[in-house]
């Protein structure tokens, strides 16, 4: 009886140990992942990329392409927003921070390098059934600040405008409000003038989905991600939102897409960035965005 019992007890202890050990090895593996360059001359390592949801799809496409050349570099991309990305690189909790707006003064840090990887326009989008083709910057300002509330005032159908905006912290929203001056200074604070009843959509895709589903909606999103089968782009001050017009600086609502790194990034990170800025990388950028050189 006793012996039997003891065998079982031993078994339990063994099982527990096994669980513990497998855990530790798993953790250990992860920790040593980037270090044991065992075979081949290929680069190895893990790059953690955090930040803007507008840059995320581009970064992912570039990473997929980069992985064909350097299969052993693992690139983890999390789209959580520009502000979070800037913060992450400032406290070194990632290798690359992504931002879809310029950094604010207080966010700048001498240890962090900025790399412009692409230019992107912010398109103003409406439902395909909407008759309005062109809006002046002032119109857009008035719509988003709530001074114009019906499409009739702009020559469209009678219908209350549903303003679709982004969540606080979004780089696209930050850039949009800054470019259209949709904010006012009060002391050292900048206050957004966005109409209070705006629908808040999380992410570019959600803006697209909301505008595509509502006839009277208007929204703004990264030009590179506009799906023209679902929504319609509106011209601003008579200028169409196209890549050429942004390159020629005719279309005014545009911003840089940034990648932020430490002053001396590790090898893998450097290789990834070099790839992005190479002719090959910029060709991928050019598929949806505006290359920088």
């Amino acid at each position: 009886m006793k012996k039997n019992y003891r065998t079982r007890a031993t078994l339990v202890v063994l099982a527990l140990c096994l669980v513990a050990v497998s855990f530790l090895t798993a953790c250990g593996n992860a920790a040593s992942d980037g270090q044991n360059a065992a075979e081949g001359t290929g680069l190895e390592g893990k790059i953690s990329v955090i930040g803007s949801t507008s840059v995320q799809p581009l970064a992912q496409m570039l990473a997929d392409e980069f992985n064909i050349k350097e299969p052993k570099v693992r690139i983890d991309i999390q789209g959580v927003g520009s502000t979070a990305g800037i913060k992450a690189i400032n406290d070194s909790s990632c290798d690359i921070g992504m931002s879809s707006r310029e950094l604010k003064e207080q966010e700048k840090n001498s240890k962090v390098q900025e790399h412009v990887i692409a230019l992107d326009g912010i398109a103003i989008i409406v439902h395909p059934n909407n008759d309005v083709q062109n809006l002046s910057e002032e119109d857009i300002f008035k719509i988003f600040s709530g001074q114009i509330t019906n499409w009739q005032e702009l020559g469209g159908n009678d219908g209350e405008i549903i303003v679709v905006s982004r969540e606080a912290g979004s780089g696209t929203r930050g850039a949009f409000e800054e470019l259209l001056n949709l904010q006012k200074k009060e002391g050292d604070k900048t206050i957004s003038l966005l109409i209070a009843n705006a629908l808040i959509a999380e992410g570019n895709g959600a803006v697209l989905a909301n505008v595509a589903g509502k006839e009277n909606a208007i929204g703004y999103m990264s030009l590179g991600m506009v799906d023209q089968t679902k929504v319609k782009k509106v011209a601003v001050n008579g200028v169409e939102a196209t890549e050429q017009n942004i390159k020629d600086k005719k279309y005014s609502i545009a911003r840089p897409l940034l990648m932020l790194t430490q002053a001396e990034p590790n090898q893998a990170t450097k290789a990834y960035l070099d790839f992005i800025l190479s002719a090959e990388g910029q060709k991928i950028v050019a598929e949806d965005y505006i290359p920088v050189n």
Partner: peptide, 26 residues
């Protein structure tokens, strides 16, 4: 997800939980 006091059932609004999930990562 509009952070505004709703005045009718058809108004957009934002709950405590969606406030956290929406902006936490930002």
């Amino acid at each position: 997800n509009t952070p505004q006091i709703p005045t009718s059932l058809l108004d957009r609004a934002r709950t405590l939980t969606s406030n956290i999930a929406l902006e936490m990562s930002y």
